[in-house]
C-alpha cells in the first residue's frame, strides 16, 4: 500500500458513521441473531454500539424471558413444512429445537452472544413505554442493561450524522 492510498483510506474512515444504533423489536431467533452479529462486529470494528430493545425484543433483557427465544412455526414460509402444520401443538417447540441444534454448531447462544457483546463495549437499553406496557420494573432487567429510556433518547442517537440506525 502506498502512502497516498494509506492517507486516502484514513480520510475515508473519518467520513464514515462510527456509531451503530440497532433496534430489536422481536425475540425470535431470526430477529435476534442478525443484530447481535452486527453489534459484535461493529464493536470489533471500533464502532460505538447501542441496542434499543422494544416490544417483544425487550424479553431479551427480562430475567424471566432471556433464554426462551423461539422461532415462529406459523407465518414462516422458510420452514421445511406446510404452514398449516405449524399451527399444531408443539410445532414451535420442535422448530425451535431443530434450529437451536443447528445454530449451536456455529454460534454462541443468544445469552452468550449478549455477554460477549457487553464485554466488547456494546450498550443495552430497555424501552421505557414497553416496560410500562408489560408491567416490568428495573428489578426485572438483567444486569447487562445499561439504561431505561424512551423515544427522545433514541432519536438523539439516531439523528447524529455520525450514526447509522438499523431496525431488525
Amino acid at each position: 500500500m502506498t502512502l497516498t492510498t494509506q492517507q486516502s483510506k484514513e480520510a475515508e474512515i473519518g467520513k464514515k458513521a462510527n456509531h451503530l444504533v440497532l433496534v430489536v423489536t422481536n425475540d425470535t431467533i431470526d430477529k435476534v441473531y442478525p443484530p447481535m452479529i452486527l453489534a459484535t462486529t461493529g464493536a470489533a470494528s471500533g464502532m460505538d454500539v447501542d441496542i434499543y430493545f422494544t416490544f417483544w425484543g425487550l424479553k431479551l433483557l427480562d430475567k424471566k424471558g432471556q433464554t426462551q427465544t423461539k422461532i415462529a412455526s406459523v407465518g414462516n414460509p422458510a420452514l421445511p413444512m406446510p404452514n398449516i402444520m405449524g399451527m399444531l401443538p408443539g410445532m414451535t417447540a420442535m422448530a425451535t429445537k431443530m434450529m437451536k441444534g443447528k445454530i449451536k454448531k456455529y454460534w454462541p447462544t443468544i445469552p452468550e452472544m449478549m455477554q460477549q457483546a457487553k464485554d466488547m463495549g456494546v450498550r443495552f437499553h430497555a424501552c421505557s413505554p414497553t416496560m410500562g406496557l408489560m408491567g416490568m420494573t428495573d428489578k426485572d432487567l438483567i444486569p447487562l442493561t445499561d439504561s431505561i429510556c424512551g423515544a427522545s433518547t433514541f432519536l438523539d442517537w439516531a439523528t447524529d450524522p455520525n450514526s447509522v440506525t438499523i431496525f431488525t
Partner: peptide, 13 residues
C-alpha cells in the same frame, strides 16, 4: 470452521 462474525470478532481481539 467458524462463521461470521467469529473471524472478525476473534481477529479484533
Amino acid at each position: 470452521g467458524l462463521l461470521c462474525p467469529a473471524p472478525v470478532v476473534k481477529t479484533s481481539q
